[in-house]
Amino acid sequence: MSAPSPRLAVSGLRKGYRATLAVADVGFEVAAGELCGVIGPNGAGKSTTARILTGQLLPDAGEVRVDGHRIDQEPLTARRLTGYVPQELSLYPFLTGRETLRFVGTVRGLDASELEHAVDALLERLGLVAAQHRLAREYSEGMARKLAIGCALLGDPPLLVLDESLNGLDPRAAAELKTVLRERVAAGTTVLLVSHELDVLERLCTSVVLIDRGKVVATLDRTGLDALGRAGSSLEAFFLEHTAA
């Protein structure tokens, strides 16, 4: 019997901006029910990779498959399968938090009763119940990030890509987000978490991909992450060892 195909398969990814090669050769696979951390120095190509994986950018070469669908050929399917929180937040400023979630849920195809239930649950979990009827433009940065995370979680997409999503969250919200991610992963969702919070990733992730100068320079699975701890090392030391100064 053949092995099940990975939820996310990335191979030979390459992307340049004029004279700068942001992504030179990125390839990795993440299975269903895995939480994969993507780490790397500033400017290594992590966010560009995340944007390509979610169809925001087209690669110059290489391919990305989500549940077997090539996202450059089936962008709509990829969007249905993916929830994405970009590094730079983007919300409709004159819709309330609740209206934003309802809009996102509707275009993601949730039916009316399912939608109301999902929106209520998310507002509760993200601590936005009191602010649900305020316009998004009146939200603080942390609240706006929570709302953006809510937009990505709505409809339970099988792949979540979160780019620096822990930034700006208060400790309670960050802890809640980690719990939500663990629950989703346990339920079979694949999560790709781009972050510089190495200690969080070390505890949370089932695997880590290290990108430097546009290339994957190392990967670690859970066993490897545990081995780091047993050897008295850390993900931070691993990062410093494998990346250029």
Binding site: G55, Q56, L76, R79, S90, Y92
Partner: peptide, 12 residues
């Protein structure tokens, strides 16, 4: 009024 990054992530 626009939220281009959000638009780009949603099924359209």
């Amino acid at each position: 009024l626009a939220a281009p990054a959000l638009d780009a992530t949603l099924p359209h």
